[in-house]
Amino acid sequence: MTSVAHQKLQTGSRAAVIFKDLVSRPSGSIGLSLVIFHVGLALISPLVVPFDYKLQNSALMLSQPNAIHWLGSDHLGRDVFSRTLMGGREALLVTGVATPLAVIWGGFVGIMFGLVGGRVDEVLMRIVDAFLSLPWILKMLVLIVTFGTGIEVLIPTLAFFYGIPVIRIARAATHDVIARDFVWAAKARGHGRVSIIWRELLPNVLDTLMVEGAMRWSWMLLAFSSLSFLGFGVSPPTPDWGLMISDARGFMSFAPWGVIGPVIALSSLIIGINLTADALAKALGIDRAQKAPM
């Protein structure tokens, strides 16, 4: 057997061990089922919804939940249940692409800052701090208002702003690893920088980044829904939970069914992601109580 095969075997088994640990925890199994349920629903919902999400029917305006329309209908007479089932598609697509992008660029820059260290790192981190101190919604609105609200703008915008806090985490994790003797040992052997980053640093920073990524995902979902709520995310008539809550909010006092569906859907997904992230952190042996991401 070659050594390459050895490596595959080992990384495979570590992933398997962590996965087993993850699902053996109640938070992990509940969280992961919720996430898988939502992702699965997003994939198949166009095939299973009972009604067309954009079909308006003025006769059914704000009608109560009944046997045909399980969650009632909204102010345009559209079926709330169908719209709820499909309301996560856009959000999951945008955040599902933007989260890995955020972790990759934030992680890369963070590791670089951690490696460079010294004054340069100090100055750059103060710039990062300044960025973080601005309210996120303001920063995003500026970009979205300038460039429009399509997916092609939303994804880079979210990825950019949510990558900035990742820089902090990746830098801190790098600082922890870089002072350790195995990095010195690699340096003393004469390995190049790229090799040290790739072989010595990355495997040790990756755990932190994975947990961080899961957390960022849930926050990004919330941000995306907020943008939709404010009218800067998904454009109607595409169903989206944030947008649906925004639309139904005016009628909440006499037609609360308009918000209940999307609220439950959005919160269950976010709770699911958070539970998974927590269990993942525990399975990977990262103490989030001590190293809470900001």
Partner: peptide, 12 residues
């Protein structure tokens, strides 16, 4: 504990 990368197998 510090001079061996905890993520590497002995082979690596």
């Amino acid at each position: 504990d510090d001079s061996l990368n905890p993520r590497h197998t002995v082979a690596q």
